[in-house]
Design a binder for these strands. Structure first.
Lengths: 336, 336
DNA sequence: TTTATTTACGAATACGTTTTAGTAAAACAC
DNA sequence: GTGTTTTACTAAAACGTATTCGTAAATAAA
């Protein structure tokens, strides 16, 4: 069944040309107020809905943006999408969601499929396993792209992030101030700027405060949860750290389980702080100190800048904000 | 800038007609293997990407589905989207996300905008504030729709849900078995089947076990978080329940905060169980007993049935599963 | 060999919209 | 009054693909 009411229907009914109808619907200056009113009225009466495919084809605009993210069952990304959606909805844009599941090949498949003009712009948070950047190079040449949170170097595009370096530095200092002497680091996102900046903050803080450091205090994130659990357990047993900084939320909870298993008390035996947007952080046993990123605002800002590009509004590089995370001190890093 | 390489480009290069190219790309039986190979090869070489708008316009298919949900910063919906995305990606479909923010007017705006043929099918979880169903009636007449989790009566469409009645019944019995005498109920989604079935399970269990009941043991969910907190606090103070069943995750955490404020011990003074997909439920203080819905599977099933409709595969009504939630007993309902 | 069928392609049209170019009529300038 | 501009519209051409219909050649059936 073909579309029931089109511009043709309206045109015939009103005895005017389809061009006039189209222009009236688009509020063109060429059309008299009188005619516009008649068209709009009839359109409403007949429940005319513009065919998006035809419109896209002719105008080369889709009123759609794509959001490519590594996962969605994660409070950070859920909140970021909320921010993105708010901006998109206000502008009448549609939002396509693509989940890479931290898999670079899937990411490539998605970016390739978006080269065809399906969307007007793209928001990306890069998969943790992405090393080769060719697919992004091609993409940013063809379509407006804004990266958010998970960003990469050597790609010429706008990037919206939080203060990864500073917040990790501050978190490390927080542990030092609370008496930690051996602070371990759970290292994730090591391929991305995000991960590199975070660990740099940790390393610099250790150096500035003359604390113990060393590669054996650093545990790399692994894709396998059981492996992560074992690695963390080994770290705690063999290195006996008295503080842990987790660069992602997913590695904080295993720490709790390991401490349960080993009979260690948080924060007395081991203090823990983690990047996290968990709403239940205050209710954990003990409540979890967090570096909480402004996820919603990151989403909003990213979408905002994407639309600035789409609107061809000029802006300076120094308008691009680096958003502030907040350090929330709770019992997991509490004194005794 | 118009599309750089189209069927026309390929046709010219290979000295064949546009129609042949199109058919070759669609693997039509009309085209020889030889020609298909040539076309596919050149397409790959020139990085031809089919123009979706043109394709949609002509074929009246969009290879896109819409997912309309009330919120996304919620583990249930995140997981459901994961399930939906898995199915959609396997079939090469694109997924549009719409968040109603539990607002019926926004919901109506979305459903109306989807009448224009932007998508091939729709998955919906109804907003809690939706009472008037006219927009759904119109929608299901025009486009394949599958409802999931948050469903409504009087609409002729496939509905994928979990065993809301049975699981709430079982949870109530669990509290009774653990010694509760006055069991309160935090009542949400009261406009929807989902909410009605849940509370029916609670009520029937109370009746079957000759337990105290009454409207003053029931607290209605409110859109304002502070109001919910106050209502729960009032409930606990004035009614002194020894058990609480929360029909949604969002109301369970305020119970914890209220107990903290009032100095009540969970589970000794008050046992709590809640519908929830929180990954941190085991780590809360105390760990939270939950009715956990198979969110991922609900998403998968819903998407699966939508594609059955799109494929015009016939199926029986009794093929539609009612998925089983699991009752996870933890410390918040533990004996002493 | 003759006839029927299959194979492999091309020409042309349609999908519904937007946009360009053209033009009567009306309004204005002098 | 003439000449110029403005207003409000139309006709027609695109956008890139999918599909219908027609057909010449190749193959199979008789």
């Amino acid at each position: 069944m073909r579309q029931n009411v089109t511009v043709k229907t309206l045109a015939k009914e009103l005895n005017i040309s389809i061009g006039t109808v189209s222009k009236a619907l688009n509020d063109s200056y060429e059309i008299s107020i009188d005619t516009k009113q008649k068209v709009l009225e009839l359109a409403k009466k007949l429940k005319y809905e513009r065919n998006p495919a035809a419109s896209n084809l002719r105008s080369q605009k889709t009123k759609t943006i794509a959001v490519i993210i590594p996962q969605i069952a994660n409070n950070f990304f859920s909140l970021a999408i909320n921010g993105i959606e708010e901006i998109a909805r206000k502008r009448g844009y549609h939002v396509l969601i693509y989940l890479t599941h931290e898999n670079s090949e899937i990411e490539i498949a998605f970016t390739d499929s978006l080269l065809s003009g399906r969307v007007d712009g793209i928001l990306i948070s890069v998969s943790s396993s992405t090393e080769n950047l060719d697919h992004f190079r091609e993409l940013v040449n063809k379509i407006p792209v804004v990266f958010f949170d998970r960003t990469i170097e050597d790609i010429d595009a706008i990037k919206i992030t939080a203060d990864d370096y500073e917040s990790t530095y501050d978190a490390t200092v927080h542990l030092i101030n609370n008496g930690c002497k051996r602070i371990a680091y759970l290292y994730a996102l090591s391929c991305l700027n995000t991960g590199k900046r975070r660990i740099a903050g940790y390393r610099d803080a250790l150096k500035d405060y003359d604390m113990e450091s060393g590669e054996n205090l650093i545990v790399n994130h692994h894709n396998d949860d059981d492996q992560n659990y074992e690695n963390i357990k080994n770290l705690i047993i063999s290195q006996k750290p008295d503080g842990i900084i987790s660069s992602i939320e997913e590695l904080a909870l295993p720490c709790y389980y390991v401490c349960n298993e080993l009979g260690l008390n948080i924060p007395n035996d081991l203090k823990i702080i983690s990047f996290s947007n968990l709403s239940t952080a205050p209710l954990l046993n003990p409540s979890l100190s967090t570096i909480t990123q402004p996820a919603f605002e990151i989403g909003r800002e990213a979408a905002g800048f994407l639309f600035k590009i789409l609107d061809q509004k000029p802006f300076d590089a120094d308008e691009i904000p680096k958003l502030k995370s907040i350090l929330i001190k709770r019992d997991s890093t509490g004194p005794l």
